[in-house]
């Protein structure tokens, strides 16, 4: 299972980096999304993949019993997903707004237009 996850993670990183290197800003953002999901998978694998009971703490105790699944990596991923979602929404609006003023989402064209302004 770990091998599979490692392969999937690697493939997704490659896809993400490939998209990031495109000039099209929308593709860049999709690249960031793919990359971030690959890293979520990485964290998931890093939390050890075991078959175990759910991480519930019995009443009156501060620590869970032995033999439970690791809840921490899932909490980390959930936090990262929520943060990533907010950032994604922001970047999409930013690019949309840029598209409206420049009429293009090509990074080079936008840079040239900006240099032309000065």
């Amino acid at each position: 299972m770990e091998t599979l996850i490692a392969l999937v993670t690697g493939t997704m990183v490659a896809v993400g980096v490939y998209l990031l290197l495109q000039r099209d800003l929308v593709r860049k953002i999709i690249g960031v999304v793919v990359l971030s999901n690959s890293i979520h998978l990485l964290i998931f694998a890093m939390g050890r993949m075991t078959r175990a009971s759910s991480p519930l703490i019995p009443p009156g105790q501060k620590y869970p019993p032995e033999g439970i699944a690791n809840p921490l990596s899932q909490a980390l991923i959930l936090t990262a997903i929520v943060i990533g979602f907010g950032l994604l929404a922001f970047s999409l609006v930013l690019i949309y707004r840029l598209y409206q003023s420049r009429g293009t989402v090509d990074a080079d064209a936008i840079i040239e237009a900006t240099l032309g302004d000065e």
């Binding site: 990031l20 960031v32 990359l35 971030s36 990485l42 970047s91």
Partner: peptide
């Protein structure tokens, strides 16, 4: 907006690398 795009994309990538390191 044009300045912000660079700032945003590069910082997003930086955060992802950080997250990978944390993992």
């Amino acid at each position: 907006l044009a300045g912000a795009v660079k700032y945003v994309v590069i910082n997003l990538v930086s955060s992802l690398l950080f997250l990978a390191g944390v993992g």
